[in-house]
Design a protein around this nucleic acid. Structure first.
Lengths: 132, 132
DNA sequence: ATCAATTGCGTTATGCTATAACGTGTGCGA
DNA sequence: TCGCACACGTTATAGCATAACGCAATTGAT
């Protein structure tokens, strides 16, 4: 899937996420965009919905937050399953892919005749700097 | 870790989860226990906190719900990372383990010197029955 | 050109999920 | 017996997400 031209609200939300150091909650994004006319959560959620669909933003289920995809210009959907390491101290998020993990998980679901739609892999812990 | 004797509230919450067909939200559990004297969410959340700690209940991050562990009498903490397949149609949850997936993920984090605390793997999609 | 369908947007209201903060009682070891 | 840890109850609040309404702009088929 190719990413279409973003609308005004989508661009605003995406820019906030790109410039952020780490993941942001929808309400944090809302607060950062009040000066740009945002007034209600739905404005954020609707933009996020599209950005997630385009694959340029990821949702971190375990912390109810969102991050810009770490592959600028690239299409995350082509990388298979995306995994995240989330530092619980500094909030830093590292995105990675592992084909062997994909392969094992997909092998398992095929054995169950389970039809996967969306897979979440999130490792929470401490990054190198924070663990020291 | 061995599971200590459960308190009254912990037992009530655990029983509800065990008898349930699928995952339940904290508020659903609350509703099911109103007849037993439960009045506030905290009574549920506090019990869940302990049950999660003991490893007899799992939290499904992607759907904000809880399930009893699929290994009766066993200690989930000894199985390594737990993965879940969640049917978005019927709500059925299948729990499984894959050492190779564990190994790959732990290999990756060690390369990053990341110290993992809690890992989430959840595959949402359609189970065999619902995909038909 | 026009009508219908689609999409984005704004607003209000509401619902669901989770925790803070306070106080009570009980059991148990120093 | 004092202090501590823990489970519990209650009220209030914080944080996350969506329903439902209406309007405007765009597109595309007839």
């Amino acid at each position: 899937m190719t990413t279409p031209q973003l609308t005004k609200n989508q661009s605003l939300v995406f820019d906030v996420l790109e410039k952020a150091e780490g993941p942001l909650s929808a309400y944090t994004i809302l607060d950062k965009l009040r000066d740009h006319g945002f007034r209600a959560p739905l404005q954020v959620y609707r933009a996020l919905e599209k950005l997630l669909e385009y694959g340029v933003v990821h949702r971190l289920e375990s912390i109810n937050s969102f991050v810009a995809c770490a592959h600028p210009g690239d299409d995350c959907h082509s990388h298979g399953i995306v995994a995240f390491a989330i530092c619980e101290s500094c909030g830093q998020v590292t995105e990675f892919h592992d084909h062997e993990v994909d392969h094992r998980l997909m092998g398992w679901v095929q054995g169950q005749k389970f039809k996967p739609e969306k897979t979440t892999i999130e490792i929470r812990g401490l990054c190198e700097a924070c663990a020291a």
